[in-house]
Simulated assay, not measured.
Amino acid sequence: MSRILGPARSRRSTRRSLLTVVAVALALVWAFPVYWMLNSAFLDKVTLQSSTPTFLPFGGSLDNFSTVFGDTGFVRALGISLAVTLITVAAAIVIAFLGALAISRFRFRGRRSFILALLLIQMLPAEGLFIAQYKMMSSIGLLNNVLGLALLYTAAVVPFTVWMLRGFVAGVPVELEEAAMVDGLSRTKAFLRITFPLLAPGLVASGVYAFLQAWNEFTVALVVMTEEQSRTLPLWLRGFVQASATRETDWGQVMAASTVVAVPVIIFFLVVQGRMSNGLVGGAVKG
C-alpha cells in the first residue's frame, strides 16, 4: 500500500509545486506595474528618459512628491474625493442592505421583477445616461456639488451591491432567527444579535466595491463636476498630466501623482481585508 501511495503523493506534491510557481509568476506580473509606478515616482526626469531602465531608485529623491503636494488643487481634490466616497459608501451599504433583506426574507408581489430589473440595470452603458444625469443634476442645482456626485455614484453601485448582499443574506438560515425568537428574543433583537454579525463579510465586501467605484470613477465626474474647484482626484490627475505635457511630460511627477491617488485605496483595502477575514472566521464559528 505504501508503494502505491508513494508515487501518488509525489505526483500531488509536484503538481502543487508547479501551481505555486505559476501563481508566484502571475503575481509578479500583476505587481510589476505597481512596483514600476512607485520606483519611477522617486526618479528624476533625466533618469527616466534614459535608454537603460533603472529598477531600484538608488539616488532618488522626494522632489516629485513635493511638486504634487505643492499643487494648489491637490488638497481640494483630495477633500472632495474623500467626501464623495464616504457618502457613497455609507448610503450604498444602508440602501443595499435593506433591499437585500427585503428580497431575501420576504415574499411580495413583483419580487422577481425587481430582481430582474437589478440585472437589467447593470447592462445599461454608463455613457448612455450622461445627458439625463447632467440635465437632472442641473435642474435640481447639484452640478459641481459633492452631494450630487455622491447621489449619482450611489445610484450606480446600489444595484450590484443589492445583488451581492442578497447572496449573503440568503446564505444565513432563517431558522437561526426563529430559534432565537423561541428563546424569548423579539424579531428585531434576533436579527441584530444572530443574523447581522454573520453578514459582516458581505457588508465589508459591498463597502469595498462602493469605495473603489467612487474613488476611481472618472467619466461621470467629468460630466457633472465641470468647474476646476470641483474636481475629484481622477480629474485633478488628468489636469496634472496635461499641465505636465505642456512642458514635455515629466513622468516622474505623473507617477508620483498616481501613487498619491492609489495609496488611500491600498491602505483602505489592507485594513478592510483583515476585518473581512475576521468576519468570515467569526461567521463560520457562529454558524
Rank of each mutant, 00 (worst) to 15 (best):
L270M: 14
V204Q: 13
V158M: 03
V158R: 02
V75P: 00
M37C: 11
V157P: 00
I95P: 00
I194W: 04
L185Q: 11
S17L: 15
P264K: 08
Q242V: 15
V172F: 06
E248N: 15
S113W: 11
D71T: 08
S139R: 06
I93Q: 08
M276L: 13
S113M: 10
P159K: 00
M181A: 12
L280W: 10
F168N: 00
G141L: 05
A156W: 13
V84E: 01
A243G: 15
S13D: 09
L26A: 14
G73A: 05
A8T: 07
L280Q: 09
L78R: 04
G141A: 03
N216W: 02
M181P: 00
T195S: 14
S2C: 08
W36C: 03
E177Y: 12
V22G: 04
G287C: 02
G207C: 10
P234H: 08
N64F: 03
S139H: 05
P125G: 01
F42M: 02
A243D: 15
M1F: 11
L143N: 02
L192W: 09
I131W: 09
R11S: 03
S50H: 14
K189D: 03
L149I: 07
L147I: 06
Y209A: 12
V174W: 13
R112E: 09
L116S: 13
V94A: 12
A155T: 15
E227W: 06
Y35V: 06
G99F: 03
A77I: 04
G6I: 06
V169R: 02
R105D: 06
S61G: 07
V89N: 02
E175Q: 13
G110V: 10
R247N: 14
L222P: 10
L62E: 09
A132N: 10
A90T: 06
V68T: 05
